[in-house]
């Protein structure tokens, strides 16, 4: 029977402190780039999902100029290919494991289809591995953020739209001046949580050789033949990243809700 951890093993970690530092930087960079890229993707997806582009709309209007009440023509007139593509994308991403997505992007897309320049960012981040990692994570979180943005917009009471449109404001103006300002306030906490999730999920990219915190744990295991102690260090590092982030978000949330009270 061994023990859970051995204190003297932590001493064996001392030569690897710089590796953990590098891993920490990689993890933070991964999360930041992923959130930026993911948010842009999510905005596009949410707009696609809520778009009103029905190329067959004319089929829904009967000979008398009124909307049909049912039937295949009405269904066809409501078909929105842009929204369909976005919805399909979101559902596929949400129904498959992120590790599979990361591997498909790395091995399938960037190893076979596109050749990436193999240079080192900051002298230690391999771009050819880092970039596919960011793309895969951003594609994943984009799908989730899309749903957050969409639900935030749709959570705004329909009466707000009605009031705005009854004043003669267009659909676009209603979105810009009435819906989005309220929606963004509502979804900020959820976006913050997604950011924390991304920090944690970025650990999965060690499977494609991104040298993040988790990859360092693996490296130390093969070099020093210890696993629990580096894992505990990794745990502490992730906690130190995520816990203050979520506290910061909670603080911002409180600041923003101040206006809601008398």
């Amino acid at each position: 029977m061994g023990t859970f951890v051995q204190l003297e093993n932590f001493e064996k970690l001392l030569p690897y402190v710089d590796m953990f530092k590098e891993g920490l930087v990689v993890t933070v960079m991964l999360a930041l780039f992923t959130v930026l890229l993911g948010f842009l993707l999510a905005l596009v997806l949410a707009l696609m999902r809520m778009s009103d582009l029905c190329p067959l709309r004319f089929l829904g209007v009967g000979k008398d100029g009124h909307l049909r009440e049912g039937g295949i023509l009405l269904w066809l007139s409501r078909f929105n290919p842009v929204s369909f593509i976005a919805t399909a994308y979101v559902e596929i991403i949400r129904s498959t494991p992120v590790v599979v997505q990361v591997m498909i992007i790395y091995y399938g897309v960037f190893s076979n289809l596109f050749e990436l320049p193999n240079f080192k960012m900051f002298g230690f981040i391999s771009f050819a591995r880092f970039f596919p990692g960011v793309v895969a994570l951003a594609m994943n979180s984009g799908a989730y953020l899309c749903e957050i943005i969409r639900s935030g917009i749709q959570s705004i009471d329909g009466g707000q739209t009605e009031a705005s449109r009854s004043l003669g404001l267009t659909q676009g103006q209603t979105m810009r001046y009435i819906i989005l300002p309220q929606a963004i306030k509502n979804i900020l906490p959820a976006i913050g949580n997604e950011f924390v999730t991304i920090i944690k999920e970025s650990a999965i990219t060690f499977t494609i050789g991104v040298q993040d915190i988790m990859a360092m744990v693996n490296a130390i295991r093969s070099a020093a033949f210890i696993i629990m102690e580096p894992l505990l260090v990794a745990t502490a590092l992730y906690f130190c990243l995520c816990f203050p982030t979520s506290k910061l978000i909670a603080y911002i949330e409180r600041r923003m809700s101040r206006g809601d009270k008398r």
Partner: peptide, 12 residues
């Protein structure tokens, strides 16, 4: 002009 049961003022 339209006036609604639940006022629908813009809260922000």
């Amino acid at each position: 002009g339209m006036v609604f049961q639940h006022f629908n003022l813009f809260p922000h």
